[in-house]
Amino acid sequence: MKQFLLRVPEVTLLFWVVKTLSTTVGETGADFLAFDLNLGMPIVATIMSGAMVILLYFQFAKFKTYIPMVYWSIVILMSINGTLITDILVDNFGVSLETLTIVFTLAMLAGFGLWYKDEKTLSIHSIDTGKREAYYWVVILLAFALGTGVGDLLSEALALGYSTALTIFGGAIALVAMWYFLFGLNAVLAFWIVYVLTRPLGASLGDFLIKPVADGGLGIGMMSVNVAFLASIVLIVVVMSFRAKKVLSNSAKGI
């Protein structure tokens, strides 16, 4: 069962569900901490970045394999930090969403390019070394920052609205899935396209749920959304953990 020797999870339906939920929590969680609790974006960014660095240290130095709770905690923290990076650059430094989208797109593509040049593969099924995992997390953080910017660009700067942005990103993912299952799109390319798209999808979903009805949202309380989504993530990750332990146990017994 090689997938459990890897540093990242097997790609299943549950993987995509938790990934989307995590990106939504990244959007709404960052706003809740920064604005509802009045901590401010710089303070929240400092706290979340510190927590992320600590978990990454243990992941690289101690664990060196896929542990569901650790992995998804890092994903959530990166999702929150990706949101904060974009929001701080836009709100505090006046960088336009168009500029951010271009810069983060180029940075992410450069990350992929360096990764491929060094390792000759971008497949997550090959992430079994610290170097490959480092490339993986760098690209993911850039993808989260990019996804936040793209989501805000479509829904707010271009005034398409949150529901329209949600439909666009969901439709794009559906098209990629169709291309993969029906027309043989390369699996690695399909994975990364969908991985990048689920970020603005989750961000748009979060905004759609919490923004006031007058602004095109549903007006659901931010606390309610965060609690519901976090509880769902924890439940699914617990299931993933039990499945992983069962497979490892059976493998050790030669079953």
Results as ranks from 00 to 15, higher is better:
residue 89 L to N: 08
residue 156 E to L: 14
residue 202 G to L: 03
residue 252 A to T: 01
residue 233 I to L: 10
residue 62 K to Q: 14
residue 240 M to Y: 00
residue 149 G to D: 08
residue 159 A to R: 09
residue 28 T to P: 03
residue 46 T to F: 11
residue 127 I to N: 09
residue 14 L to F: 14
residue 148 T to C: 08
residue 230 L to E: 08
residue 7 R to M: 15
residue 199 R to K: 06
residue 181 F to S: 09
residue 160 L to Q: 12
residue 173 I to T: 06
residue 110 A to L: 15
residue 91 D to L: 12
residue 99 T to D: 13
residue 230 L to K: 00
residue 158 L to N: 03
residue 247 V to C: 00
residue 204 S to P: 02
residue 122 L to Q: 11
residue 56 L to V: 10
residue 28 T to N: 07
residue 241 S to I: 00
residue 23 T to M: 07
residue 203 A to R: 07
residue 232 S to G: 14
residue 252 A to M: 09
residue 187 A to F: 04
residue 190 A to H: 05
residue 33 L to R: 00
residue 124 I to V: 15
residue 250 N to E: 12
residue 13 L to W: 13
residue 20 T to K: 03
residue 195 Y to C: 06
residue 217 G to K: 04
residue 35 F to R: 10
residue 146 L to R: 09
residue 127 I to C: 07
residue 123 S to Q: 10
residue 54 I to C: 08
residue 231 A to R: 00
residue 39 L to R: 01
residue 205 L to R: 06
residue 167 T to V: 12
residue 223 M to W: 09
residue 88 I to Q: 07
residue 3 Q to G: 11
residue 131 K to A: 14
residue 226 N to E: 07
residue 185 L to N: 09
residue 82 G to T: 03
residue 203 A to L: 09
residue 67 I to H: 10
residue 132 R to A: 11
residue 255 I to D: 11
residue 83 T to M: 07
residue 167 T to I: 15
residue 72 W to V: 11
residue 153 L to H: 02
residue 55 L to A: 10
residue 188 V to L: 02
residue 168 I to T: 07
residue 158 L to F: 13
residue 145 A to H: 03
residue 208 F to N: 09
residue 175 L to F: 13
residue 88 I to F: 08
